[in-house]
Design a protein around this nucleic acid. Sequence first.
DNA 1: GGATGACCCCTACCCGCCGTCCGGGCCGGC
DNA 2: GCCGGCCCGGACGGCGGGTAGGGGTCATCC
Lengths: 213, 213
Amino acid sequence: MIRVVVVDDEQLVRAGLRLILEAAEDITVVGEAADGAGALEQAQRLRPDVVLLDVRMPGIDGLTVAPDVVAAGPKVIMLTTFDLDEYVHRALRAGAVGFLLKDTPPRELAAAVRTVAAGNAMLAPTVTRRLISSFAERGPARRDAARERLAPLTERELAIVREVARGHGNAEIARRLTMSEATVKAHVSRALAKLHAGNRVQVAILVHDADLL
Amino acid sequence: MIRVVVVDDEQLVRAGLRLILEAAEDITVVGEAADGAGALEQAQRLRPDVVLLDVRMPGIDGLTVAPDVVAAGPKVIMLTTFDLDEYVHRALRAGAVGFLLKDTPPRELAAAVRTVAAGNAMLAPTVTRRLISSFAERGPARRDAARERLAPLTERELAIVREVARGHGNAEIARRLTMSEATVKAHVSRALAKLHAGNRVQVAILVHDADLL
DNA sequence: GGATGACCCCTACCCGCCGTCCGGGCCGGC
DNA sequence: GCCGGCCCGGACGGCGGGTAGGGGTCATCC
């Protein structure tokens, strides 16, 4: 039996959610709350499996209390009317594993509760879509391209270039790698040539894109 | 009516998918293919709304042909038995808007087809879960911290610092922003002071982390 | 209203660091 | 041997960064 706590400032919404979820034999609503403070209290006292958490509420809102609720143990599904990017970002960073709109059909809501209770995640389709596009853009596309460009570098050159990417000066690099500053400069110079870069800044960006801290 | 093309090397799987999808009144299967080449041909000739594309196939596999299929117009849902990270990454980068496991219940499969046809996205819960965690980790954590540090900068300083992050030299920045090189240096200098940075490389990294291209 | 200060933008000069060019020692191989 | 790659080092010109200062706007205060 999956134990759920429902949090929303409108009693009507809470009642509706309770009706929907109780209709499933494997789900039971063990508590309700009307604001963030109540949500946290219930989460800590009742130790539910899942908390349905409204985003906008008077007092402490859902996004603000979400990290604490997550820390208390249960899986958190955020509920909202509008899927603003701002909301989604904060929710996912807070550790929520679900983000649903309030127009979600009852059947899918119950399915979402089961999904997150099983340790997986469930997002509204529109949210999923934008998460994917943000992933495809900033994902490993540039990273692999950067590593490709860094490939012709010697091991030593790579080590130096890495230090460059940390913002260290040539003198400091020389100290760290125990060599003459002139040597560092030579390595940097040849790295610049190989990478077709004009600045050390450009190679720093490149190394950064390649994820080589 | 949503027009679908089913692609899998095993005829039994194709037949099963067809049965499942045809059971929905708003979905019709207009074509089948057994490999990547066939998938592309069908996508270009039949112009379906959605293509269900198996990952592993003899000849041209699904992941390889996915970019071309996407370019032909239809929404692409990848189908696979194993949700390896490698698969998911390539699929999403290729432009797929769906990624489902073959153990997906029939009802959800039809729902997924409708979802992507409506312009949204649908992922298997396990995939969603890992996508979220990767987003939460490498996502806006550093980004917001970087923007925090960049906050005290003047508008003008920010513009210059942005150019710095692109690897441009002071002279080039001066040309681009139509001002004296000495001016650029002064701005950079005060930016360095405000950011507690010793190098222009460090501010370049900072701007890069803040996602300000 | 005028003085004052704070803030931002611009500019000019000086010095240290960065980058280039050159050369030397060291190892492995067709 | 000899060549080619890699790692080192020195000397020079140019770019980067620090400092000082002038002009402009706006808000505050007398």
